[in-house]
Write a protein that binds this DNA or RNA. Structure first.
Lengths: 67, 67
DNA sequence: TTGTGACTTCAAGTCCGTT
DNA sequence: CAACGGACTTGAAGTCACA
């Protein structure tokens, strides 16, 4: 499993753990809702600045999303 | 300090720890020589697939480069 | 509430070189 | 050996309408 799929699974898992919809997550991370959808399906290859915003919104270290 | 600067410092530190030139690092990570130079100077915002290749070459978890 | 195709803008990433 | 510039191609960022 590559890093894009690991990110996808971690995002969905951690978001649901918070009880957030994709829309609420998107708002908190300041990222478009449909982009979150793409990321959770492993359909994008984001830059580290995007991943950093996601990690901040989820309140986890970046490594928790990618390792 | 943002994630790009943290990556820059970690890359240079870990590469030098291995005793590699930028060119040798580039070869091992299958990334262009000039791009490594850019990354170590914090001048680029790489995708996670690139960071993954860098981490693999350095034999460290991705989190060690970004957290 | 989420998935998806389509789209534009701009940066990621490569390759040539010189300092 | 590393910094840096210019020119280039590819692909990410960001958004929308609609299923």
């Amino acid at each position: 499993m590559d890093v894009i799929d690991r990110l996808a699974r971690n995002l969905r898992r951690l978001r649901q753990l918070k009880g957030w919809s994709q829309e609420e997550f998107a708002f908190r991370a300041e990222i478009h809702r449909t982009y979150i959808s793409d990321l959770e399906r492993g359909a994008r290859n984001p830059t580290i600045t995007v991943v950093s915003r996601l990690a901040t919104a989820l309140q986890v270290p970046i490594g928790d999303l990618l390792d």
